[in-house]
Design a protein around this nucleic acid. Structure first.
Lengths: 249, 249
DNA sequence: TTGATATTGATTATATTTGAACAAATTACA
DNA sequence: TGTAATTTGTTCAAATATAATCAATATCAA
């Protein structure tokens, strides 16, 4: 019964009953109360639940209707798994770049309760994080209708004014030859985000790994870590190149 | 039955009945009256309810600044009349500044089909004009949650990079002594917009005319024209100062 | 295997929550 | 206005939860 398993159980309990009790939890899972407490504390630190005396309750996800965000994402489960890992990397006080990829967008749900600053050029991200604990900064510039995000010279300049502790970015493809994008605009934004953050995470599902498409806009050295569901043997080459690999189950 | 659970119950009760009674609360939740009292005191300290003798009532549901989602704006007819006049001033090819006032927001519906560029710091405006004929440019910077708009140093700098043919702006008040705003941030944005557009329209209903409030941030010379429903005789003074007045019926 | 690291549990000290009793303040009502 | 009833704040004690420290166990890389 490891942490992942227990975490799952905790959320099952929370979803069905709305609250968990340390004593009961410890008894049901066959663990010590101190362990149950530590689990809940950690999950509370990640903003995934609220701690109470003797247990925890679930956060109320003050749901708002966002008509224009296309929620029917493909591969939602894989992307969510990747985003859970990503969210665990985020600490209170972080300043975070988020770009306009569909994977990165799904990170929103996991960071709503964190006290952090998010700087983004993505309208869906903005609408998703409005009225959350997150403090928002919007990259200005021309709106690209198709991507629902700001791009262009002014956007790049704007990014250059900020320094983030962490960047969470998507790409259209990545291989040992570097990063690939479907447009120069996207490449420019990604480069700007990565260049102005202390640590850069790339979020990409297995389908993106090894994929070379249209524009090769930078080497692997731009990236500090890749969060992916791809197999360990596939990722070994990247690790040998000095890129940290975080595997999402 | 911990504090969080009780808190939930208290708000359920408040929402349905509008008030709670300490005795009943203690009986229903199976807690001592002193505990119920302490709960209510704490929630009152957080401003989540008002304490009364023997219980509590709910706080006035203060208007959420989600005015754009809640489209039932006050004075909608007057504002729409003003905006129709404003929209008539806009030609194809114009580059337009729009700020985050509630009157200016209502201009959106009248310009959706025009082939123009709109530069704005207002999220509601962006939301409303997405997927229209209008080409959008978003002013970046820190998001002010209450106003749902970008403000601050970076926003002002960003505005300074652009030149518009026309600006459509709101204020909190205007008198012969100049323009008035409720915050420095707002004043800064308005000044920046006006300073970088060839022609500046002020949209204000009769209630704003002659109103002096908080911060006087500029003289009448900032403005080229006022669009208003105020009476002709009231507006004569402004015309004599060289401001063009467009009257909305 | 070994050593290093992370996880888990036991023990003890500290902090929080809750309720009871009683004095002070407020309200209700004649 | 004055008196009784009620509500409130304060202090204290008991029960319970939590944090801190240290030891035991598991995991992992070399």
């Amino acid at each position: 019964m490891n942490f992942q398993k227990r975490k799952q159980k905790i959320f099952e309990e929370l979803d069905s009953r709305g609250e968990v009790d340390i004593k009961k939890l410890a008894a049901e899972l066959g663990i010590a109360e101190i362990t149950a407490r530590r689990d809940l504390n950690q999950l509370a630190a990640d903003g995934l639940l609220y701690r109470t005396h003797g247990g925890a309750v679930k956060v109320n996800p003050q749901e708002r209707p966002h008509a224009f965000v296309n929620k029917t994402a493909q591969n939602a489960e894989v992307k969510d798994a990747i985003c859970r890992v990503a969210a665990a990397q985020i600490q209170e006080g972080d300043i975070i770049f988020m770009d306009c990829g569909s994977t990165v967008f799904r990170l929103c749900q996991f960071i709503k309760n964190k006290r952090i600053k998010v700087i983004t050029n993505s309208l869906p991200v903005i609408y998703e994080l409005q009225d959350s604990a997150v403090s928002l900064n919007i990259i200005g510039g021309e709106l690209d209708d198709a991507r629902q995000a700001m791009h262009g010279i002014i956007a790049n300049e704007h990014i250059a004014r900020y320094r983030a502790t962490k960047a969470f970015l998507g790409v259209d493809g990545i291989s040992l030859n570097g990063l690939f994008a479907n447009s120069e605009k996207e490449a420019g934004i990604t480069t700007a985000f990565a260049g102005n953050s202390a640590y850069t995470y790339l979020l990409c599902d297995a389908g993106k790994i090894g994929r070379e498409t249209y524009l090769n806009f930078g080497g692997l050295d731009i990236v500090d870590a890749i969060i992916t569901n791809a197999g360990a043997e596939v990722m070994q080459d990247y690790e040998e190149r000095g890129v940290k690999v975080l595997r999402a189950v």
